[in-house]
Structures are given as C-alpha cells and as structure tokens.
Amino acid sequence: MTGGLLEIRGVHKSFGLLEALRGVDLTVRPGEVAAVIGPSGSGKSTLLRAINHLEKVDRGFVSLDGELIGYARHGNTLRELTEREILRRRTRIGFVFQNFNLFPHLTVLENVVEAPIYAQGRPRAEAEAEARELLARVGLADRADARPRQLSGGQQQRVAIARALALRPAVVLFDEPTSALDPELVGEVLGVIKELAGTGTTLVVVTHEVGFAREIADTVVFMDEGVVVEQGPPDAVLDNPASDRTRAFLEKVL
C-alpha cells in the first residue's frame, strides 16, 4: 500500500455561532504518521470529519494527492461534487471511529467485505479472501462469523480497523480509537495501529495516549481552540514545546 499526500489549507468550520475550526493548515506526507493531540473540544474530531467530507467546510480545502475531497476545482471556483462522486473519493480514506460503529446485524466478515464489494465493485471472492487476510492480521481470523456484539471492545475496534483497511486506503484516520475501551484492551488496538505505521500508509491518529504518540508518530500536532498551535517531531513538541498552551496541556495529561 502506498500512502497519500494529505494537504489541509485554511479550513474553517462553524456550528452556528461556534467556530470549531478557525483556519487549520496541515500537510501530512505520503506514509507519514501524524498524531493529533489537544484538549477536548479543540476541534480534532471536526478536522478528521472535514478531511473525510463527513463535515462540509465553510472555507479552505482538503486534498488527497492533489485531488480535492468534496469539490472539483474550475479555476478559482470550487464546485461541490455529487454525492456519488464524494462516496467514490471517500473510499481512498479509511475512518476508524471512537465507538467502532460496526454494523451489528452483519457478521464480522460481512462488515469487512461490504465496502470493497459495493463501494469499489470488487468481486466477492477476492474481497472475502482479502478480508480473511486482514482479519488474520488483526488477530481475529477465527471470529469471521461472529457478530460484533459477541466480541470485546478491543476485538470490535480491531475489526473496525480491518474494515477500514479493506478499502486499500491511501490515508487512514483514527478518531481516539482507544478511548471507548477498558484499559486492559487498549494495548491490543494500539499494537495493530503500530504495526500499520510501518507499512507506508499515511495515518492521522487523534489520541489521548501521549506515550503512544511519541512511539509511533513522525509528527505530533497540537491543536487548541480550532487551530494547529504547534507541530513537529515528537521529542520537539512533547519535550520542548514552543508554546505555553502546549506545555500547559502536556502538564495536565502526563
């Protein structure tokens, strides 16, 4: 898998009077692992959702390998794409939710093959073979026929990761993938993400686990009040933060 180049330029997003994002700029290079940290309500989830066009931005744009996510560019105008076209472009981006959001009425295997077959039009046999490989990779080869509610939280999140990877995405976005888990289950999910970090796929991981961010990230991004306050290599941002806001946040979480 080859990673995509993610470019976020001047992104603004408001909910009513509340400005959740106020001009976010960020570049994530192909194969890079970016860990996004920041206080609750700072706009981390909104940023991930804007990247995936689950949230339409008010100003600015997000592009993946030069291709705008929700829009087509004609000179200086951005024209919003049809839903069908947006859905197609979204298959290049995997999204792993805090609450897994697996489809509870489908088996694990059905969860994983749904998108490759119906969003990407791949043959069922091929999709199933690949799904079983992915399930083996996340350590759940023997649970293919179980339903999500029969699994532990950690297992469910690993299925969700396999489901996101089944699209062969250029970028995978993780929104606090371990914060809905019991402490003893966090490790197994982080392990899977860590393994993924070496494979060349671009990753953007919103996380509370500062130690994990240090371990896997090439870049740590600190967000606060809807802007990127600081970004850089883990030891720079985490050990010698340039901003007082970053330092104050790190003192609280460490």
Partner: peptide, 24 residues
Amino acid sequence: GQHEAAASLGIPRHRQVRRIILPQ
C-alpha cells in the same frame, strides 16, 4: 454512527439504506 460509518466507507446511498439502516 451507523449512517456515518456507512457514508465513510463510500457505500452507495441506496445500499446504505437497504443493507445498513433499514434492517436495523
């Protein structure tokens, strides 16, 4: 979250409704 997961996977709209939403 079910709507969002289906949308984020790029599953076509009619299929989202028929396969993911209505059965639940």
